[in-house]
Nucleic acid binder design. Sequence first.
DNA 1: GTCCGCAGGTGGTCTGACCAATTGATCGTT
DNA 2: AACGATCAATTGGTCAGACCACCTGCGGAC
Lengths: 244, 244
Amino acid sequence: MIISPVARQSVADAVYAQLRDAIIDDIQPAGSTLPSERELSEQASVNRQAIREALQRLREANLVTIVHGGGVRVRDWRRTADLALLPEVVVAADGRIRPEPSLAMLQLRTVLGVDAARLAAERITDDGVATLRERLAETVALHDGTGNPSSATMIGAYERIWVAIVDASRNIAYRLMNNSFHAANTQFARLLPADDTARRDHTEPYVVLVDAIAAHDPEAAAAAASEALGVAERVMTMLVSNPG
Amino acid sequence: MIISPVARQSVADAVYAQLRDAIIDDIQPAGSTLPSERELSEQASVNRQAIREALQRLREANLVTIVHGGGVRVRDWRRTADLALLPEVVVAADGRIRPEPSLAMLQLRTVLGVDAARLAAERITDDGVATLRERLAETVALHDGTGNPSSATMIGAYERIWVAIVDASRNIAYRLMNNSFHAANTQFARLLPADDTARRDHTEPYVVLVDAIAAHDPEAAAAAASEALGVAERVMTMLVSNPG
DNA sequence: GTCCGCAGGTGGTCTGACCAATTGATCGTT
DNA sequence: AACGATCAATTGGTCAGACCACCTGCGGAC
C-alpha cells in the first residue's frame, strides 16, 4: 500500500489559510477590521510572530491593508486581489469546486490560449518546434501505451504542451499567466474524480494545432487552439456543473 | 509647495524588495541556495523575524522553496511565478522601465480587453450601462475642462472605464486580471514623464466602445476595444521604446 | 465649543532561547 | 572497500517577553 505524503503545514500557513478563506467567503467582510495581532495570537494559541507572517502574506496578496498603529482592514478582494488568488477562489474552504469562478477561469484560459497559439505561430523557432513535437509525442504515447495513466498525469502532459506553446510565443506576461492556470489546474486535478473524461483521448486537435504552429500559420493555429481548448472547456463545464 | 508623501517601508519590505530584485535580475540564479536566515539577518543588521517575513512572502510569490532544516532555494520565476509578479517585472530595481515585459503586458491587456468588451456587450445590465456612461462622461469632462489634470489622473479615469467594462463582463477571472494591470499601470504612472501623450484626448474610440456595449453588439464592441487599446498600446510602445 | 495633550491600544522591531527537520561526516559492520 | 546506522552541526519553525513608533480618542484647559 502507498500512503500519500502528509501535508505538513506550518502554524502561519494554517492561520493564513483560515483568514484568507474567511475573507473570500465574506465571513470577514470588506471594510471590517481584524482583531489585533495580540488578540489573534491568543485566540489561535500561537505566537504573535506566526500571526504576523500570515498577515504580511495577506497584505502581499492585497487582501488587507495594515496601518502601523492603526489596525488591519479587510479590502474588497474582487477589486484589489490579482490573478494569483484564482486557484484559491476556484476551490471553497470545504474543498468543493466553485462552479462560477471555475468557468470564468476556463473562459480566460481559452482566450489566452488562442492568442498564445497565434503568437507562437509567428515567432516560434526551429528549436521550439522540436520541443513542441516532443511534448506532443509524449502525450500521444500516454494514450497509446498499455499503461493506465492517472488523470493528473494526463493533465500534466497537456499542460506541458501549453508550456511549450507559451514559451514559443516569447511573451513573459503570457508565461506568467499560464503559471497561474497551472496552479489552478493542480487544484482541479486533486479534486476531480479519479476515473473521468480527462483521461480520454483529446489529442486530435492538438496534432492540428502543433502542425499549424510549426507551419507558421497564425490563423490556423488560433482556430486549432480554439478547438482544442473548447473541448476541454466543455468537458470541464460538464464536470463542474454536475460533479460526481 | 506640496511635498509628496514619504514612502515608509518596513525593514521586512526592504529585505523582500532586495531579494526579489536579485532573483528577477538573475543575480541570485534559479537553483541557488540563499544564505541562512541567521546569516541574512546578520548581513542586513535586522532581526531574524524580519528576514522570515520577507522569505515567507517570497515563497508566497513562488520565487523560492523553503525546506524545514534544508534551506531556501531559488526557483525559476519564469516557470513558477504568476501574474502578480508582472508589476514588479516591468520596473527594474533602479526604477527604469523594462521595455520587453512592458510590451508583453500591453499585448496581453489588448487581448483581454477585447474579449472583456465582447463579453460585456453580451451580459451587461441596464445598471451596468448607466455606470459605464457615467465613467465615460467623467473622462470626457476631464479633457473638456479648463483644469490641468495630471497624467496619473487621466490614466485613472481610463482605468475606471475598464473596471466598469470588466464588471459588466461578470467574469471574476477577468476582474482579477484587470487588477493586475492596474498595479502595473500604477507603476507606469509614477515613472512616465509628467507632460506626455497620456494626457491627450483618446476618448473617441471609447465613445464608440461604450455605445457598442450598450447596444449589446459584441462584435462592434470587440472592434472598438481593439481600436481603443491599440492606440494606447502604440503610445506606450513609443514611450517605452525611447524614454524621455 | 474648540483645541491641545496625554494615555492606551496597535503594529514594528528586537533579543534570546528552544524545538524540529535535514544534512553530512563518522564510525562500525559486512 | 562498500554499505548502513548513528550522531552532531546546520537550518528552518516556534515561542516568550520586552520595547519602540504610530494612531486614536478621551478629557481637561482655554
